[in-house]
């Protein structure tokens, strides 16, 4: 019998309302295994509002507060303040927000929380569009992706603009710890969650959380596609602690991005030439990442 690579404690209960094969459901499960039972979670309007199930049930074994979509940064500052005031400083504070609630409408609140040096972990679970409202583009939707508001019709080729660089924005605030995580790599995920939980000050996770209905792939492919995102260099896994960057999943030869793009309906319209362009961009950003890592 193989040893468990994740703690057996389950702080997410069954019976939740995530779609079959949901990436964000895995993200919460792994995250809480790392931060532990003494965690309070703040969730803005997002898929997890629904996943956590309607009153009177709840899918978390922990306290969870709902907030409007743009308020996660402020909410976790408030939770931290109350816990400190009430002498419960041991309790971890986690904000768990979607990509739209972070890079678009919640950006101000996130920036405020980072700048205030709130002792909390902000987790952005990135399924790369407004999925809870039915697949509308967000600032975090990748270029070329089909969504209901970036249709592939006539001359339109899906989203026309590149994905917003949230890690760049966050790192400009100099958090004590920031990392990219992927539900397809649970052991790396867990290590980062445990590490974040051991630190004080503002911390940030950018979690790739594939979405079967939104990306248009079968519900059993979530982990396969997640792995390809990292192994093609599209979503590299790294961490930045005190300004020092370290790639946590080293890659020799990158897999062709074609392998990742071709298995998702949202990219079904992309031509070989368009995929080649993505390939070049990914190669360049991967090289830049390695250069940054090499910097003293």
């Amino acid at each position: 019998m193989a040893k468990l690579t994740l703690p057996p404690v389950e702080l997410v209960r069954s019976g939740h309302s995530a779609c079959p094969g949901c990436g964000p459901a895995l993200a919460m499960r792994y995250l809480l295994k790392g931060t532990g039972e003494r965690t309070v979670v703040s969730v803005p309007a997002s898929c997890w509002t629904i996943i956590a199930t309607g009153y009177p049930t709840t899918a978390l074994r922990l306290p969870m507060i709902d907030t409007p979509i743009e308020a996660t940064g402020a909410s976790i500052s408030g939770l931290r303040a109350a816990l400190d005031a009430l002498h419960m400083s041991d309790v971890q504070v986690v904000g768990f927000a979607g990509d739209g609630g972070t890079v678009d409408i919640g950006l101000q609140s996130l920036s405020g929380m980072l700048e205030r040096r709130t002792d909390a972990l902000y987790v952005m679970y990135d399924n790369e569009a407004y999925m809870n409202t039915g697949i509308q583009r967000s600032g975090s939707t990748p270029e070329g992706a089909w969504t209901t508001t970036t249709p592939v019709e006539g001359m339109a080729r899906g989203k026309g603009e590149p994905k917003k660089d949230i890690m760049g924005i966050v790192l400009a605030h100099h958090p004590v710890y920031a990392a990219t995580l992927n539900v397809a790599y649970p052991e790396d995920f867990l290590r980062k969650a445990q590490k974040a939980a051991s630190l004080k000050g503002p911390r940030f996770f950018h979690v790739l959380a594939p979405c079967p209905p939104g990306w248009k792939f079968a519900s059993d492919q979530t982990v396969q596609i997640g792995r390809l995102a990292t192994d093609t260099g599209i979503f590299p896994l790294y961490e930045v602690e005190n300004g020092k960057l370290r790639v946590t999943r080293k890659l020799g030869q990158l897999k062709p991005v074609r392998d990742y793009i071709k298995v998702q309906g949202r990219f079904g319209h992309l031509t070989d030439a368009e995929i080649d362009t993505v390939e070049h961009e990914v190669q360049a950003s991967w090289a830049a990442l390695l250069q940054r890592e090499a910097r003293p």
Binding site: R13, S14, G15, H16, S17, P20, A52, T53, G54, Y55, P56, T57, T58, A59
Partner: peptide, 25 residues
């Protein structure tokens, strides 16, 4: 799940979600 007729505690949800049988999906 059965709800009480009054909600004196306000909108606090604490019942375990595993009473919901998602096998119907």
């Amino acid at each position: 799940p059965a709800l009480s007729s009054e909600v004196p505690e306000g909108p606090i949800a604490s019942m375990a979600s595993d009473v919901l049988h998602t096998s119907s999906w």
